[in-house]
């Protein structure tokens, strides 16, 4: 299949970027989106043009490194799928694809489709951990039994791979889904409950300080999330915030 790509090209953080048109010819429907981009990049290199920079690592949908906005949807049109796991059979011969980086004040463009997501790390550093001691004297972490429903709930929240698609999708550039996934994951566990109040306050404050917006319940994050993280965790985070007030 043949496709026309409109790809965001930007030399550096302060450079002015623009969409460039490239043709992707003879693309196999079985290739992944990133393999298609690899082919386009090879052509560009042969023509003496800088290849399109885009973040990617594991290419199996678990590391959270890849991601761009494809035809207006973060990670492209397939639900609950990362950019690397998106296959070209989702598109048709002759399609045009507009490919842009995550857009948010807190995610400055590094080059082309690569953005700096360290703002998410700042949020995690502000409280996305537990200070539980483990070891022989205190006992194994596994000694504390946790019921199956709570473990499942926590694991669902822990499925976040930190890709940032929720921020890219949010009309307010808010990182509330990302933040709330961690707040909720830890708040329901006995190890995490101890610091729950500090955590929700510190993490949501770090979110604002990093330049992310506020949640106004558009729920675009949930629709874009490759891991299917639910906005119920945002409601949970709001509850945790109210609890922390008391």
């Amino acid at each position: 299949m043949d496709l026309t790509l409109y790809v965001w090209r930007q030399d550096g953080p302060d450079a002015k970027g623009k969409l460039e048109q490239y043709e992707a010819k003879n693309v196999s429907p079985d290739s992944s989106f990133l393999e298609m981009m690899d082919m386009v990049n090879e052509d560009l290199i042969n023509e003496g043009i800088d290849p399109v920079e885009l973040d990617n690592d594991c290419r199996e949908g678990i590391c959270g490194t890849c991601g761009c906005v494809i035809n207006g949807i973060p990670h492209g049109p397939q639900e609950e799928t990362t950019t690397c796991q998106l296959h070209m059979r989702k598109f048709s011969d002759g399609d045009s694809l507009t490919i842009e980086p995550w857009r948010a004040a807190a995610f400055p463009v590094v080059k082309d489709l690569v953005v700096d997501r360290s703002a998410l790390d700042n949020i995690i550093q502000s409280g996305g951990y537990t200070s539980a001691y483990t070891g022989e004297l205190i006992g194994e972490a596994n000694n504390t039994l946790i019921s199956k429903p709570i473990a499942d709930y926590s694991m669902d929240a822990a499925a976040c791979i930190g890709c940032g698609a929720c921020v890219a999708a949010c009309p307010n550039g808010s990182a509330m889904l990302f933040t709330s996934a961690k707040v909720a994951q830890l708040a329901v566990l006995p190890q995490g409950a101890i610091e729950a109040a500090e955590r929700v306050n510190n993490m949501t404050e770090a979110m604002l300080n990093a330049g992310f917006g506020n949640c106004t319940n558009h729920y675009e994050c949930e629709a874009a999330c490759p891991q299917g993280i639910s906005v119920k965790f945002i409601a949970k985070t709001n509850r945790e915030f109210i609890k922390a007030l008391a």
Binding site: A105, N172, G213, T216
Partner: peptide
Amino acid sequence: QLTLENRAARPIDYNQKKNIRTSFGAE
């Protein structure tokens, strides 16, 4: 105040953006 902050958090618009879940009322 919140609306202004939220606009500032998304200073550059997409050339193409498809909203999936939100509503006209919310926007």
